[in-house]
Design a protein around this nucleic acid. Structure first.
Lengths: 103, 103
DNA sequence: ATAACCTACAACCAAATGGTTGTAGGTAGG
DNA sequence: CCTACCTACAACCATTTGGTTGTAGGTTAT
């Protein structure tokens, strides 16, 4: 999923489809590349669960899935939580040093 | 930066160095790949600002930089904020419908 | 019906990625 | 001093990635 977010075009697609539905060809018009290239980007995002497609007549409407973004954010939150553990350890070490000073 | 986080080994390196300093060779011992491969992963993380290196004698100690992770999280938060805009729009549309009903 | 449009998918290509081995330079320790 | 260790970096290789064009099938509208 981070891999899916690693490309700027794909991040932009997620950004746009977060507030509004776009057909694949509608998205393709926004970028200086072929329809097929955009279609592939959408496929990568869909496989990563970041986006879903809904058929309407002859077009496929693309929508971002906010829950996938929340999962990614959760992973980053966990990394930050580890950081706090480190701070705790540094606190313990300081506490031990003070013990040493008192002894 | 999402590109840097796109690889599982690199995410693990960030995770480990978030709580503790590791030398590059110390990290290399953890993964079933050559020292040079791990060295490259560290270089990618360093270039993305996710990690910093500090020399200690003949080794280089690697530490994660929590602020970079926070930047990444901020981007995801912005995506979620866009989602809320969409909800607002749906609310407006519903309000308009109700006006129509009242008329 | 047929022309225009949207999508899916295959085949192909250049560049980036993730891995390897090999070479060389700095640091620590017996 | 010399050996062992840690790091940096180059060269190379296979696979993946991001792009292209081309072909074919389904939908809409005139």
């Amino acid at each position: 999923m981070f891999r899916a977010l690693a490309d700027a075009t794909r991040r932009d697609i997620v950004r746009r489809t977060m507030t509004q539905e776009y057909s694949v060809s509608g998205l393709a018009r926004l970028y200086p590349m072929s329809f097929a290239a955009v279609q592939k980007h959408v496929a990568v995002l869909e496989e990563a669960g970041l986006v879903t497609k809904r058929p309407r007549g002859r077009e496929q409407l693309v929508t971002a899935d906010v829950t996938a973004v929340r999962r990614a954010r959760f992973l980053l939150d966990q990394l930050e939580a580890l950081w706090l553990e480190r701070i705790d350890r540094m606190g313990e070490i300081l506490a031990q040093d003070e013990e040493g000073d008192a002894r």
